[in-house]
Simulated assay, not measured.
Amino acid sequence: MSDEVRSRIEDLPNEIWLEVFDYLDWINLFSAFYGLNKRINEFLLSIKYLSLYSSYLINYSNSIYICFQEFPMKEFKQIQHFQLIYDNPYENELNIAKDFTRFSTLISLTIDANCGESGCNNEFGTIIFHQHCPYLQRLYLYGNVFDRELQIIDNVCTFYFPSLRYIHVNKLPFNMAMQLLDQCTQLRSFSAILYGYPERVSSILLPDRIRMGLPLLTKLSLGEDNYFETESSSTLFELLFPCCPNLHTFTVDIRCNDNCEKLLDPNWWAHLFASHNRLKRISFHIKWWTRNFRSNGHEKIQRFRSSSFFTELNANITSEFDSDFLRSVSYDLYIKN
Rank of each mutant, 00 (worst) to 15 (best):
P72F: 14
S63D: 05
D99L: 04
F103W: 11
N292R: 04
Y60L: 07
S118D: 06
F174Q: 11
F71Y: 12
A177D: 02
L222H: 02
E93V: 06
D25N: 15
R278Y: 09
P134R: 11
L164G: 01
T158D: 06
F30I: 05
Y195M: 05
Y142R: 02
K77D: 07
I9C: 07
S163W: 01
T249F: 10
L52F: 04
M178I: 15
S328K: 11
Y197E: 02
I58W: 00
Y60K: 10
S108W: 02
Y160N: 15
K300A: 06
H271W: 05
Q83W: 00
F241A: 10
I254K: 00
R6Y: 05
V5R: 09
L139T: 08
E231C: 01
I96V: 14
L313R: 14
F190E: 02
F33T: 10
Y53L: 03
L84F: 06
N170W: 02
T110V: 08
S203Y: 07
F33A: 12
S51C: 07
Y65V: 01
Y49G: 08
F284W: 14
E123Q: 04
F250S: 00
S46H: 12
N41F: 14
F146I: 00
R8C: 14
L206F: 13
D99Q: 08
N316C: 13
C120I: 10
Y142F: 07
F82P: 02
F309C: 10
N267C: 08
Y160F: 13
Y160E: 10
F100I: 13
T251K: 05
E199R: 12
H168V: 00
V169G: 03
S306Y: 10
R138L: 02
H285Y: 08
F43H: 15
D208H: 15
W289H: 06
Y60E: 12
Y34W: 06
S306R: 13
S306M: 11
I111Q: 00
L279I: 15
F33H: 08
R8V: 11
S328Q: 13
R255I: 09
W269M: 04
P198V: 09
F293C: 02
S108N: 04
W288N: 01
V145Q: 08
Y23D: 14
Q151D: 15
F325M: 13
L150I: 05
L222E: 03
Q179F: 03
T235I: 01
